[in-house]
């Protein structure tokens, strides 16, 4: 209780990430990231369709992998980014951390949804059904539920500043539980299906598949970073506008 005072630490790291500073330096990244992602997508798609052979086992359907694997990777990568932002909000009290967390959640949900759709479209010709309770797909589905829970919690709060810290706690609780969920689903999977001869990401992929896969994954990741940056900038602008709106309301009340 005694001399409890909160001073904002002003080392360079938080200076760099101060909303005003963030808006300035992030503006320079938009076009480079945009162009890079367009180029990567062009090269990736060209490789995916015109320059890689069909897989000897999966046949042509391996091309679905070129959009499924990047999205599955991004659904995990995005949650990792949110967990780091959550630690940033709670531990380092980083001014931009909760903005990054809030900007990433809907993107994560969208990528997870795409991973699920492409996964089931890939499953239909391979396993004969749109949804096979395979370990990896089930974990991805549960991850999707966690994303929805986070977005729902964000939206239930009116006061976004208080929401940030509480959602950060849930993000970290989720992050701790994801490995447990993965482990239990895999255990459950071996319980019901002793062995699927065909794991979702297939046997060690030969070189000809790696290049399109890697390019497409890079393309999607760069796109994600771009969208995340843009959404963070929008959130900063929105909070500035909200503050002005509050002032306007307060002025009007005083005036009336």
């Amino acid at each position: 209780m005694t001399d409890q005072s909160e001073t904002i630490s002003s080392n360079w790291f938080s200076q760099l990430a101060h909303p005003g500073m963030f808006m300035r330096w992030s503006a320079y990244l938009i076009w480079p990231l945009g162009l890079l992602s367009i180029v990567l997508f062009a090269v990736g798609l060209w490789f995916a369709f015109f320059h890689s052979p069909a897989d000897y086992q999966m046949g042509e359907t391996v091309r679905i992998m070129y959009v499924h694997v990047p999205n599955a990777w991004l659904s995990q990568f995005c949650y990792g980014l949110m967990a780091v932002s959550a630690v940033g909000t709670l531990v380092w009290r980083h001014p931009m951390a909760d903005v990054s967390m809030k900007a990433a959640a809907p993107l994560g949900a969208a990528f997870t949804a795409m991973a699920l759709v492409t996964g089931s479209l890939w499953g239909r010709p391979t396993w004969g059904t749109f949804w096979e309770w395979d370990g990896r797909m089930t974990s991805t589905l549960i991850l999707f539920l966690i994303y929805l829970g986070l977005i729902a919690l964000w939206r239930t709060f009116e006061d976004q500043l208080r929401a940030a810290k509480v959602v950060a706690v849930l993000t970290l609780v989720g992050a701790v539980n994801i490995p447990i969920i993965k482990f239990s689903v895999d255990w459950w999977n071996t319980l019901h299906q002793p062995s699927t001869f065909f794991r979702a990401d297939g046997p060690k992929a030969p070189a000809s598949i790696i290049t399109p896969l890697l390019t497409m994954t890079l393309a999607f990741t760069v796109l994600f970073l771009l969208l995340h940056l843009l959404r963070m900038r929008t959130e900063v602008t929105k909070r500035k506008a909200d503050r002005l709106e509050h002032l306007k309301i307060a002025r009007q009340q005083k005036g009336a």
Partner: peptide, 25 residues
């Protein structure tokens, strides 16, 4: 009462008080 974050300084002291035995809050 310590239920709300604030900036600035709130210091409460009790003369020769054993804070471990009887915490301030």
């Amino acid at each position: 009462a310590g239920l709300l974050p604030f900036s600035g300084e709130v210091s409460i002291a009790l003369a020769d008080w054993d804070y471990d035995e009887h915490p301030l809050h």
